[in-house]
């Protein structure tokens, strides 16, 4: 499904033959790669992730303004530190989403992942406390609360 959307966006032509070819090939590739199982779309999960993105974007703007203030400061008042975070997430996809969100936010970066322990490198005291307050993690746990745990 997602592959078909990607085909349409890349080719950007809406004639019948292109649409038919894209449909056949994308479903064939998805069927081969997913271990010959039937494809079950999870619309509610995707909707929740889509609703999560604007909040993440607000966090990105906030912390990047803070980080550019740190970089442009003449005395360079940075204090880098490694923080170890123990998350309670029970899904592979949720841990991946958490690590991606942390890395995408400027000022914090995921260094190491081991099932659900993360080591995070933060630029400053304020940013590392922001990670330890676990705002992002509670949001992601809220997204995945209906799924079967697989970790």
């Amino acid at each position: 499904m997602a592959l078909f959307v990607f085909w349409v966006l890349i080719s950007a032509s809406f004639e019948w033959i292109h649409l038919g070819l894209g449909l056949v090939f994308s479903f064939a590739v998805a069927w081969i790669n997913s271990g010959h199982s039937l494809f079950v779309p999870k619309f509610r999960l995707w909707l929740r992730i889509l609703l999560y993105l604007p909040w993440l974007f607000y966090k990105i703007i906030e912390s990047s303004l803070y980080l550019s203030k740190l970089i442009l400061h003449p005395a360079l008042p940075i204090d880098p530190q490694l923080v170890s975070v123990d998350s309670k997430l029970r899904h592979h996809a949720a841990v991946v989403l958490l690590g991606n969100s942390i890395t995408l936010t400027p000022g914090t970066i995921t260094v190491e992942v081991d099932s659900n322990k993360l080591i995070v490198h933060a630029m400053d005291k304020v940013l590392s406390e922001d990670i330890e307050s676990k705002q992002i993690e509670s949001k992601i746990a809220d997204i995945f609360k209906d799924e079967e745990p697989d970790l």
């Binding site: 990105i60 990047s64 980080l67 970089i71 936010t105 400027p106 000022g107 970066i109 630029m123």
Partner: peptide, 9 residues
Amino acid sequence: HAVSLTDSL
């Protein structure tokens, strides 16, 4: 961190 600032915003 600086590189990720470019990439995201």
